[in-house]
C-alpha cells in the first residue's frame, strides 16, 4: 500500500472522493501509518468520524475492510479463530464407520481413546477452522484495512492478545502451530476513552485525536453530503452547533447530529433557520430533555449572525 499514496495531500484527495473530509492532521497521520506500517489509535468523542475514517480509507484504497467490533466479554473465539464444532460433529457422524474400524479390537476404553487421539489431527485441521477478523486480516493474502472498533469496550486481557498479534503478525493455534501473516493489514484502533489502554499497546501506535471539527471543516462535510443546502444556511447551522458544543450539556452533538439536522431541515424544506425551525428539529440535536431545554433558552444567541 506504500506506493499508492505519495503525500498526505494525496490521502486527503482520495478520502474526499469517498466523501470523507479529512483535516491535514488526519491525512498526515494516515499517510504515516501507511508508510511506517504502524497501527493508528484513534481517540475522540463519539460521532466525530473515527469509524468512518477506516471505512472511507479502505474504499479509497480499494482494499477489503475487516471489521472487529469490540464489546465486553469479547474473546478469542470471536476475535481470532474458532473451531467449527458443528462441522466437526457432522464429520464424526459421517465417518462413524471409519472410527469404528479404528477402534475395533481394542481391549478397553483407554486403548480406544489412544487410537483416536493418534488421528485427532484430522479434526483439528484448517478445514474446521473459522477465521475471525484478526486471523482473517493477516491471512487474507492481500492488503486490507483491519478496523478494531471501540477497543476500550473489550476487556484488558484482550489487549494482550492483540498486542501479540500486532507485534509479530502471527497467530499461534495450539493444534496447528504458528500461522504467519501473508498480508500486513493497515490497522485502525478506535477508542472512546472509557478506560485507559495499556502502555505497551499505546507505544506501538501512532496517535490520532479527532476532536470536534472546525467550522470550516464541518461546513465542508455538510455541503459534501447535502450539496443542495444553501451556503448561508450551512454556515448558520454549523456556527450554532459549535456554540452548542461549548455549553454544559449531558451529550454534545457531534458530526453525526449535524448531518441528521441538515437532513431534517431539508425534509422540512426550510429555507431559513430561525427559532421556529430550531424548535421543530431540536430532537435531532439534543438527545436529552434537559439539554433541549437549555438549547432552546439560548436560541437567539445561537442563531445570531
Amino acid at each position: 500500500m506504500k506506493n499508492r499514496v505519495k503525500t498526505p495531500q494525496e490521502v486527503k484527495g482520495i478520502l474526499e472522493r469517498q466523501s470523507y473530509i479529512a483535516s491535514t492532521q488526519i491525512a498526515t497521520i494516515v499517510y504515516l501509518a501507511i508508510q511506517m506500517q504502524r497501527p493508528i489509535l484513534i481517540e475522540g468523542p463519539a460521532g466525530v468520524g473515527k469509524t468512518e475514517l477506516a471505512k472511507a480509507l479502505s474504499q479509497a484504497l480499494a482494499v477489503e475492510l475487516v471489521h472487529l467490533q469490540c464489546y465486553e466479554g469479547l474473546d478469542e473465539t470471536k476475535a481470532i479463530y474458532e473451531w467449527e464444532y458443528a462441522k466437526q460433529l457432522l464429520y464424526t457422524q459421517m465417518l462413524k464407520e471409519k472410527i469404528n474400524e479404528l477402534t475395533a479390537g481394542t481391549q478397553d476404553l483407554n486403548e480406544a481413546v489412544e487410537r483416536i487421539v493418534a488421528v485427532e489431527n484430522a479434526f483439528f485441521s484448517k478445514n474446521f477452522l473459522v477465521a475471525r477478523p484478526l486471523l482473517k486480516a493477516i491471512t487474507l493474502g492481500r492488503p486490507n484495512v483491519l478496523l478494531i472498533d471501540e477497543i476500550d469496550k473489550a476487556d484488558p486481557e484482550f489487549e494482550a492478545y492483540l498486542l501479540e498479534v500486532l507485534s509479530n503478525y502471527q497467530i499461534t493455534i495450539p493444534e496447528l502451530g504458528t500461522i504467519e501473516a501473508t498480508s500486513i493489514p493497515l490497522v485502525f484502533l478506535t477508542s472512546n476513552n472509557t478506560r485507559d489502554l495499556s502502555d505497551a499497546l499505546k507505544r506501538r501506535c501512532l496517535h490520532l485525536y479527532i476532536d470536534f471539527p472546525s467550522n470550516e471543516l464541518e461546513s465542508e462535510i455538510v455541503r459534501k453530503k447535502y450539496p443542495t443546502l444553501n451556503k448561508e444556511m450551512v454556515a448558520k447551522m454549523v456556527a450554532a452547533i459549535s456554540k452548542i458544543r461549548e455549553m454544559d450539556l449531558k451529550k454534545l452533538p457531534s458530526i453525526a447530529e449535524t448531518l441528521d439536522w441538515a437532513q431534517s431541515l431539508i425534509a422540512l424544506q426550510s429555507t431559513r433557520l430561525g427559532k421556529e425551525e430550531l424548535e421543530t428539529t431540536l430532537g435531532v440535536i439534543a438527545k436529552y430533555q434537559a439539554d433541549a431545554k437549555q438549547i432552546l433558552e439560548k436560541a437567539e444567541e445561537l442563531l445570531a449572525g
Binding site: Q25, T28, L32, E43, N193, K202
Partner: peptide
C-alpha cells in the same frame, strides 16, 4: 522516523507527525 516521511516545511504536517508519535494520552 515519522518526521522523515513528511514535508518538514509544512508546519501542520510536522506538528501532526510529532504529536502522533509523542503524545500517548489525550
Amino acid at each position: 522516523e515519522a518526521v522523515s516521511h513528511i514535508d518538514p516545511l509544512s508546519p501542520l504536517q510536522f506538528r501532526s507527525a510529532l504529536e502522533a508519535a509523542l503524545v500517548q494520552r489525550a
